[in-house]
């Protein structure tokens, strides 16, 4: 152990040249993506939206240990607020988006109130109920378009409109990047440490001076804010919203993203959201999906136009995560990294 420790290195974002290099590569890929995969632009944008949701949900579930099976409710609040403010009140997109995030955050406080006293299955049902209630209520509020929803065109910035797919992609990618870095920094510092302490032992955490109610509420708020922002972006990306987008299975899908990627890891949120979203969008053409398609070809199974199969695959992955690799995709990646570092020994 070296005697002179540079403590900043422990928490520094992108410590060392290797990390800086790979992050730069990643950013270049994000910027170049619309030109590298023009046909997949919608998919990549949707992955960006879902990454934001997964980042927030992972802070709540992975770091703080609080289950939420109602996150689609927060996404819905963000989406509807953004759209209504833009369409009916003529408020520019950035303000409407932030308002959507903040309203979702306030609902996060409302959900946190009962959640403070609940654990395990009781918290699961309370959040599930919340998500379903939001969906039903939104479908019945007059002026929100009922079950047909509302359509929306582009991002009105006040002085200009962003309507092109590429433009919308860059907005989503930029926000996702900023929110990803913010999530990483929150997790690595005092607040994130308090969250993890609550997850591992709430009694010891409070004995060390952490206000449990305050920090659990904060975790719900951050998580709901992420979901709300993502909701606004999703609405613009799709060009419409309706209550059926926020069915409770969608909440379960968000939950699956976080678990598949790796609970408690920012990189896990990114990997999980990308993997699950990719699978879902390609659900009726699984034979063309890498790895899985190859396996299917190997067993000569043709799953073209077989809906339901993605559910089976996602479900199997969840079960495997619990039985084999509790850290999800991120854990697998860590193993590969350690394997290469020690290679060839």
């Amino acid at each position: 152990m070296d005697m002179k420790r540079h403590h900043y290195e422990d928490v520094q974002f992108l410590h060392g040249w290797a990390n800086k290099f790979w992050f730069a590569v990643f950013v270049v890929l994000v910027i170049a993506a619309p030109y590298m995969f023009p046909a997949q632009l919608f998919l990549i944008s949707l992955i960006g939206v879902n990454i934001i949701i997964a980042l927030g949900l992972n802070i709540l579930t992975g770091n703080t240990g609080q289950i939420s099976l109602g996150h689609a409710g927060f996404v819905a609040i963000g989406a509807y607020t953004t759209v209504v403010l833009m369409q009916s009140w003529m408020i520019p997109f950035p303000a409407a988006l932030i308002a959507g995030g903040i309203l979702a955050m306030l609902f996060g406080v409302i959900l946190a109130l009962p959640a403070l006293r609940l654990e395990g299955p009781y918290l699961a049902i309370a959040t599930l109920a919340f998500g379903i209630a939001i969906k039903i209520i939104l479908g019945n509020i007059p002026g929100l378009g009922g079950h047909n929803g509302i359509s929306v065109i582009g991002m009105d910035l006040g002085f200009t409109m962003i309507t092109s797919e590429v433009g919308i992609y860059y907005v989503i990618a930029g926000i996702a990047l900023v929110m990803g870095i913010a999530a990483r920094n929150i997790v690595k510092s005092r607040v994130g440490r308090a969250f993890q302490a609550i997850r591992d032992s709430d009694i010891a955490a409070s004995a060390a001076g952490i206000n449990l109610a305050g920090y659990k509420t904060m975790s719900f708020m951050i998580s709901a804010f992420y979901a709300g922002i993502a909701g606004g972006l999703w609405a613009v990306l799709l060009g419409y919203i309706n209550p059926n987008m926020f069915e409770f299975v969608v909440s379960i899908e968000y939950f699956a993203m976080v678990v598949v990627g790796g609970l408690g890891f920012v990189a896990g949120s990114v990997m999980g959201a990308a993997a699950v979203t990719y699978l879902r969008v390609n659900s009726d053409n699984l034979n063309s999906v890498p790895v899985i398609g190859w396996l299917l070809d190997l067993m000569s199974i043709d799953l073209t136009v077989q809906t339901g199969v993605t559910w089976v695959i996602t479900g199997i992955v969840l079960i495997l995560v619990v039985v084999l690799e509790p850290l999800g995709l991120y854990g697998i990646w860590l193993r590969i990294k350690i394997y290469w570092r020690t290679w060839p020994f």
Binding site: F255, V259, V309, I316, L318, I319
Partner: peptide
């Protein structure tokens, strides 16, 4: 997670 996994498998 496990039971949600089974739920997805059986639903699909």
């Amino acid at each position: 997670i496990l039971t949600i996994g089974l739920q997805m498998v059986l639903y699909g």
